[in-house]
């Protein structure tokens, strides 16, 4: 039992970060039906930005730098949307162009970073990086706890934004029924732009949360891409709340699997679960199954 808890608690903590990473992907899909394969590379870029802020003289703690990262990626995400993504949405059933555009963008980010910073792993180690506390017999790492708390705070702010602000409500309306939202006077082009910015920034802050215990390379995104997709699909494509629940569940499964199998293959569980969901409940744990007749 204790052994189980020793894996469960870190699973919940990392699951909170996955939830944050996935919520950005879920928001973007929900509002404009774009599966953004470059999402994990936004995370990677944010990790490099956190590292640059921390190691590059300013010395600002990545958790404290999170608002800066959010702002930078909100603007950056909107720029990417305006320059590239908006040209491949709206055309009906245009998944091909969306898939290759976002894959291509992700690849460009990876290789530009590779050229600038090489593939040498970078580490952000604040003074408390190895600290932690025992709660009973369970060790809780300080940085992972902070990462989880950061995720909770951002999740709460996102909830307030989507439910309490005019723009947030417009985004929810557009993701439920863009035509009806148009009749309300919602500018769909604008909600798409803002939703892409917010979605990018959410995942970026997820990167800030990870950076204190995950070493950074140009290709670190590849390790998280399926985790993010698994969380989003588990919670139901397009549902931001679902992506949160999905993220936490993925964190738990990944961590608890180590009770039975070695840590090296923990992601096999995640990938396998992802497939299983796609096969049996493609619209998520809470969604309906739609099949061709």
């Amino acid at each position: 039992m204790i052994e189980f808890l020793q894996f469960l608690v870190p699973g919940i903590l990392i699951g909170g970060v996955y939830a944050l990473l996935a919520s950005g992907l879920g928001l973007i899909f929900g509002v404009m039906r774009v599966v953004n394969f470059a999402q994990a590379d936004f995370m990677m870029l944010a990790m490099y930005l956190s590292w640059a802020i921390f190691a590059g003289g300013v010395g600002l703690d990545p958790f404290l730098a999170a608002p800066l990262v959010f702002a930078a990626f909100f603007v950056g995400g909107m720029a990417v949307h305006w320059l590239f993504v908006r040209h491949v949405i709206g055309r009906r059933e245009n998944h091909d162009a969306q898939v290759i555009l976002t894959i291509g963008l992700g690849l460009i980010f990876q290789n530009l970073i590779l050229i600038r910073y090489s593939s040498e792993p970078r580490v952000v180690a604040p003074s408390y990086a190895n600290d932690g506390d025992f709660v009973g017999e369970i060790f809780i790492s300080r940085v992972r706890l902070y990462a989880f708390l950061l995720s909770v705070v951002v999740a709460a702010l996102l909830f307030l934004f989507l439910n309490r602000t005019r723009t947030g409500r417009a985004i929810r309306a557009a993701s439920e029924n863009w035509e009806a939202a148009t009749y309300m006077g919602v500018d769909i082009g604008r909600t798409n732009l803002i939703a892409f910015g917010v979605g990018t920034a959410l995942t970026a802050v997820g990167g800030s949360a990870l950076v204190t215990f995950q070493s950074i390379t140009p290709f670190v995104g590849l390790r998280f891409v399926v985790v993010m997709f698994a969380a989003v699909v588990l919670g139901g494509l397009g549902s931001v709340g679902g992506a949160f629940v999905g993220g936490v569940l993925i964190g738990i499964i990944q961590s608890v699997s180590q009770v039975w199998t070695s840590a090296a293959v923990k992601n096999v569980w995640v990938f396998g679960l992802f497939l299983l969901i796609l096969y049996v409940r493609p619209n998520g744990l809470f969604g309906k199954v739609q099949r061709a007749i």
Partner: peptide, 10 residues
């Protein structure tokens, strides 16, 4: 609009 198009989840 026809068919009401209310936001069902809100």
């Amino acid at each position: 609009p026809q068919g009401r198009m209310i936001f069902a989840s809100m």
